[in-house]
């Protein structure tokens, strides 16, 4: 039964320019992340609650963290670091785990989007979500009286901390998503997040942990927390902590490259 040619489906194949593909992928992923209730809770609601709760409760009981700084100036950078960690690690791991489960990565594998484009899209999507987090947490911090160190040094140091923290946590998140099933990834990513929130020196400075602080500074959470705090308190990059993050990034990328399965 031959059908008449309509010309509607006449082949005209071709890939969109790679930049357009990456931007499309990033916007799509960011949109889905921000639409998901649990992800939003993790990305914005919990950090904001930690910030407000920490500052008000801390001031009420006259909390001394062993650093000679107003509490809000210590906690706001810590909460920003927490937000970076939740997005780059927990959200990314969970999203990627379910993408594998639902065959999204497999489907995209048959599209013109190359794997490197998919990765770039993911990193860019994380950047978009982090921008939203930065605005909200920054605004809440301002309301609570946060006064960050001003100047170009702060911006540069903060940017370096975000970049290195994202690389380190994203590579570790992909590693978890690549070796575990989707449900196990969900559980593990949330559990690790909670453990690092409590004992990872991310929100509270190392000085608050006493002797354990010497251990915590080698954790990616401690290093990220210190790097963001140093950026906003002193306005300079914390090279040593950035170095620790780099080591974690290399470790995470190597593990991911060895174990990650796209399907």
């Amino acid at each position: 039964m031959p059908e008449a040619a309509t010309g509607m489906f006449t082949p005209k194949p071709g890939s969109a320019p790679i930049t357009r593909q990456v931007v499309a992928q990033a916007l799509m992923e960011a949109k889905l992340m921000l639409r998901n209730g649990e992800q939003l809770l993790l990305a914005v609601v919990i950090p904001v609650m930690v910030l407000i709760g920490g500052v008000t409760a801390g001031n009420a009981i006259d909390l001394d963290l062993g650093a000679d700084q107003p509490l809000v100036d210590l906690l706001t950078p810590g909460v920003l670091a927490l937000a970076i960690m939740s997005t780059s690690f927990t959200s990314l791991a969970i999203a990627t785990g379910f993408e594998r489960r639902y065959g999204v990565i497999k489907r995209l594998g048959a599209s013109p989007l190359p794997r490197i484009g998919l990765l770039a899209g993911k990193v860019l999507a994380l950047g978009c979500v982090q921008l939203v987090q930065l605005f909200i947490i920054g605004a809440v911090g301002q309301i609570l009286g946060w006064t960050p160190a001003a100047g170009f040094g702060t911006v540069l140091a903060f940017f370096l901390a975000i970049a290195m923290g994202t690389l380190a946590f994203a590579s570790l998140g992909l590693f978890v998503a690549g070796v575990l099933r989707a449900e196990a990834t969900l559980a593990a990513a949330n559990l690790i997040y909670l453990l690092l929130l409590a004992g990872g020196a991310v929100v509270l400075p190392l000085t608050a942990y006493g002797a354990y602080g010497d251990v915590a500074r080698w954790l990616p959470s401690g290093a990220l927390g210190e790097a963001v705090r140093t950026a906003f308190l002193d306005g300079v990059p914390a090279w040593r902590d950035l170095g620790v993050l780099l080591i974690w990034a290399v470790l995470g990328s190597t593990l991911t490259a060895r174990t990650f399965k796209w399907e």
Binding site: E99, Y102, V104
Partner: peptide, 14 residues
């Protein structure tokens, strides 16, 4: 890849 179209057996979307 740009020249072929693939329909998988189920799933393949967020």
């Amino acid at each position: 890849l740009p020249r072929i179209g693939v329909m998988l057996q189920g799933q393949g979307a967020w």
